[in-house]
Design a protein around this nucleic acid. Structure first.
Lengths: 222, 222
DNA sequence: GGAACAATAACCCATTTGGATTACCTGGCA
DNA sequence: TGCCAGGTAATCCAAATGGGTTATTGTTCC
């Protein structure tokens, strides 16, 4: 029998989730809390007797939010698996929750059977439940960890007042295309592309392509 | 119609995969390559006409491995989604492939329907395909920030094996210097500078300066 | 001793590039 | 209404670029 804690400030959310879990006789909801503080208080009591195996934690809550609760909880109760309940497009909180110690993530709108499977899998294999779409976001975050550094002291590239057309050309130039190829791609004469290039170099106050790309990359345009 | 590239050194693997995809009429395999170099060469040709939407890349290959090919490919062809084909327990390579620009991962032993679903989802929603067990590994890596940090020293750019001299030249090229100027600065013949440049372009599998700089910037070398 | 590799250098040659100039057409703004 | 910026296009020309090839010198490793 798998003991579950549900932490969400909205009672309707708690009920919906509890209902989804009720179809599997192995799950038993033993704790319901309305925020992180309430949860931690109840855990303090529960630790005298019996702890939940899994805590399903909403991230957005008053008083003490989910990330903070996971951070404390995962330290205090290392055997408890913390699973974040989240909505799509909540990137920052997701990343923070990971670092705080969450072992998995479930979208709130996920169907009952899916959630059941994920939690069963967590219990049996130790593999954290991850909605594919969120896993992808995490991948992107990891990938951007290197790119973030260059953005730091980046002044807005816009100060150079490139026209839209010029930005378009600059982007194509960065891909290694020649004037001829660019002209073919956006359906103008290669001569015009060349003229645009010259104008770009003038506006950026550089001698040629390499320096223009240098500025474009280091100022965060590319 | 979704255009697919399959890169694997073993023909049986390519055939099995192509066969799994053949049951869905939306998939069309337009490129098959036996290693990373073969793939990049074929992409150079393909870029003149039509590129694949998705590249399914084996990670362990001779000549040029999958991580290197993804590193180059994701810089040169940002619209192409790179999916790594991997076996379980290949943690290091998986993580490197992520940093190199892979958007998803599929276990080789995954069934045909599962792979079909994952790729369709990638195409329709932009969510990268990730086997749950691998997604969990990635979470663990992110949580162990020490592992993330130390790996930053092993920049993805190093996979290209440029010599010190070549890196020096590449850096000078990025500053917008010409062969003549570079030669004067480091006191060698402009002809030699030109030769080094050619060698750099070959090692990076690119056509010229712009693409070389693109890789250098996006992979964190510059 | 020989193989492999990096660095050096020179040559040819077609293509691309950058710089400078001139010109026309359009839409928006004063 | 007229001006002007932006996009379009063409031309000339010198210089730079890239793609080959070949060759000599060191070093390192087997």
């Amino acid at each position: 029998m798998i003991r579950i804690a549900i932490i969400d400030d909205k009672i309707s959310n708690r009920n919906i989730l509890a209902d989804k879990l009720s179809h599997n006789k192995f799950f038993k909801v033993i704790i319901q809390a309305v925020n992180g503080e309430d949860f931690l208080d109840q855990m303090k009591e529960a630790s005298k007797n019996i702890l939940p195996h899994i805590a399903l934690m909403d991230l957005e809550m008053p008083v003490i939010d989910g990330v903070t609760a996971i951070s404390s909880g995962s330290s205090l109760y290392p055997d408890v698996k913390f699973v974040a309940l989240t909505i799509f497009d909540d990137d920052d909180r997701i990343f923070n929750a990971i670092k705080a110690g969450a072992c998995g993530y479930i979208l709130k709108e996920e169907s009952g059977p899916v959630i059941n499977d994920m939690l069963m899998n967590l219990w049996e294999n130790g593999a954290g439940p991850i909605s594919p779409s969120i896993a992808y976001k995490i991948l992107q975050m990891v990938q951007q960890q290197t790119a973030v550094q260059t953005d730091r002291n980046a002044l807005p590239f816009d100060v150079f007042n490139l026209s839209e057309r010029e930005k378009e050309i600059l982007k194509l130039l960065s891909e290694g295309l020649g004037h001829r190829e660019i002209g073919a791609k956006i359906d103008i004469s290669p001569n015009t592309v060349k003229k645009h290039s010259s104008n770009i170099y003038q506006k950026l106050h550089v001698n040629g392509k390499a320096q223009a790309l240098r500025i474009a990359y280091t100022k965060g345009f590319l």
